[in-house]
């Protein structure tokens, strides 16, 4: 492709441009309120290039309406279109758990969830757990028990850990370890993760 062709593609891409509704535009800008230079970093969603699917869904309680490439994963929708980069890509094949988010309250691997599937549904990411400055008890428990090192798998670990408690699976160490085995931590913080969930299970229940 020549540069000329490239320009054509870019301009013609505008016609297929992602439709981000007015309210959604506001939403996208406020999706990353905690980032220091959020204004600078919120991406203007670029043109999509494949056939798109029109979806409308909730992310962390806010409505997003978008035309998204039919091939895209929920993970790439969150990270590359909505600047919700707390959710991580570790394998892109459902083999590591770094991309775990809640879909209608249940943990899923966002890398194997096609973006089109979330139409009409509710997505919660790591950015949606805290209430303002107040950490979710599981986030606090991860700090208290140093249940992390590099932090890359941590968002996925926490999303699974929350579900471990809310689904009543944090009953004993064996059950917690089994439930959490879909989240690989290469730094090996499993001991701290187990302790964090045991701690949060008490706080969340009591």
């Amino acid at each position: 492709m020549t540069d000329h062709g490239c320009n054509n593609e870019t301009s013609s891409g505008v016609t297929r441009r992602t439709v981000l509704g007015v309210s959604a535009g506001v939403t996208a800008a406020s999706l990353v309120p905690l980032r220091l230079d959020a204004q600078e970093q919120v991406p203007v969603p670029g043109p999509e290039n494949g056939p798109t699917t029109h979806i409308s869904f909730q992310v962390n309680g806010e409505r997003v309406t978008i035309d998204v490439d039919g091939r895209a994963s929920l993970l790439d929708l969150l990270r590359e279109r909505l600047a919700l980069t707390g959710t991580k890509k570790g394998c892109d094949h459902g083999q590591c758990g770094a991309c775990t988010v809640h879909l209608d309250g249940r943990p899923v691997s966002s890398c194997l969830t096609m973006a089109a599937k979330v139409d009409g549904r509710q997505v919660t990411t790591i950015e949606g757990l805290a209430r303002g400055d107040e950490l979710h008890p599981m986030q606090q428990a991860f700090i208290d028990n140093d249940a992390l090192q590099c932090g890359y798998c941590t968002p996925g670990q926490i999303m699974s850990a929350v579900a471990c408690v809310t689904q009543g699976q944090a009953t004993d160490p064996g059950a917690i370890r089994e439930f959490m085995s879909g989240n690989i931590c290469r730094c090996g913080a499993y001991v701290g993760i187990l302790a964090a969930i045991a701690q949060a299970a008490e706080t969340m229940e009591g």
Binding site: P107, S109, T113, S160, F179, G182
Partner: peptide, 9 residues
Amino acid sequence: AASQQLRNM
């Protein structure tokens, strides 16, 4: 089978 995330999907 698989992981709890995948079993939810």
